[in-house]
Amino acid sequence: MKLALEEIKYNKGKYFMITFIIMLISWLVFLLTGLGNGLNTLNAATIKNINGNYLVFEKDSENKFTKSTISGTQIEKIKKLKNVDDATFLGSSMSSVSNEKGNKKTDITIVGITNNSFIAPKVVEGTINQTNDKRVIVDKSLEKNGYKVGDHIKISGLKKVLIVGGFTENNTFNHLPTVWLPLNLWQEIRYAAPGSDDGNSDPVNAFVLQTNSDFKVSKLTGDLSNLKVVTREDAVQAMPGYAEENGTIVLMLVFLIAISAIIIGVFFYILTMQKINQFGILKAMGAKNKYISRIVVSQVALITIVGVVLGVGFTYAVAAILPKGMPFDLNNTTVILYGIGIILISLFTTIFSVKQVVKVDPLIALGRVE
């Protein structure tokens, strides 16, 4: 390691450029990951953060809210299922909101729940009275559209004027801010057209379950012929465009990391080939292949670690100045896993460099024989 450090100090410019390139590669990986996670969160935050383990949909709905309509009267038999602690109603649909005068409509997702439901979002600003069906909870992202606590608002399809009772955070659905309505008001909007409820009484899109650790879908018994119980993760994956969007982002990252591995490998290979004569001298002085290989690996590890750490810092610095409405979500676990991945890939690419070191003949490297 000492010899590796001495060489880095001696060739500061060369190693600085390599470190800088690794930093940019790391930054690009982390930035795309954060933006990709941000888009995914924007699409499904409401369901991801919901206080429930499982959801119940109509059997042939493909776990999609838009295709599922079930009778609310069936919730009683759901509550009686073994290891189910509680169950509640959930409805969602697209709409738009405007101020009381009807100016400047904003696209939203409306979510219908019952009073005092365990899936009601946490209010971070304002207060909400569950018995007052005029006061509703809205996502804080609507603030940028000029809405504030106490404002009177109108939702398309609803005659009643509502009041913004409080704001909640990280509650978006289908890339739109959510407005949480009492279930009866949501039903009034969603099933306004005759026959849209498919003949179901007290219709909703789904039930949300709170279960204990012994609950297993495979062990469910009872009359569930027209219903399907799925995990919250399955419900998220079934959301329109979610899997495709996530797959595109993952594919981009895979190609980016693969290309990065090639670039890093080529850089270190060229760097190693430039030092063949030096390695030949070390071998002539009695240095073993193992010792020289450790020098190469130590340099790669040190440069990559520094580059990744700088890349992480640069990513968070850029994230701090991103426009407020731009979705960005990068957690520490993801940073650590991707950082370790980049370091391991860099170390893996040293295999080709080390193979050249092992092949070095001291006499040929010193130019004594042809």
Rank of each mutant, 00 (worst) to 15 (best):
S225P: 09
I110N: 00
K219H: 15
D329Y: 09
Y316T: 09
N205D: 14
A319V: 09
N184H: 15
F255N: 06
V97Y: 00
V136P: 03
V369L: 00
K359G: 03
N246M: 11
T349W: 02
L185I: 11
E76P: 02
F215K: 12
I47Y: 07
S201K: 15
L337H: 06
I259W: 06
A87Y: 01
T172D: 12
F20C: 02
L271D: 13
V97R: 00
V300H: 05
Y147L: 13
L256G: 06
K154I: 10
V97I: 15
G241I: 01
F207P: 04
G367C: 07
F328N: 03
N289K: 13
T168E: 14
L55S: 06
I343T: 05
K228V: 14
V138Q: 03
V296K: 11
E62H: 06
I264V: 15
V358Q: 05
I340A: 12
I70M: 03
K134I: 05
V161Y: 01
D151L: 07
R135K: 11
I343N: 01
F255V: 14
V254Y: 06
G286A: 12
K160S: 09
K144C: 00
Q187G: 08
G112T: 02
S61M: 11
D107S: 08
M94Y: 11
I113T: 09
K144M: 08
P203Y: 04
I137Y: 02
Y242R: 09
Q74C: 01
L227E: 10
V300S: 12
P121D: 07
N171Y: 14
A235C: 09
K77L: 07
I153C: 07
T46G: 02
Y54F: 14
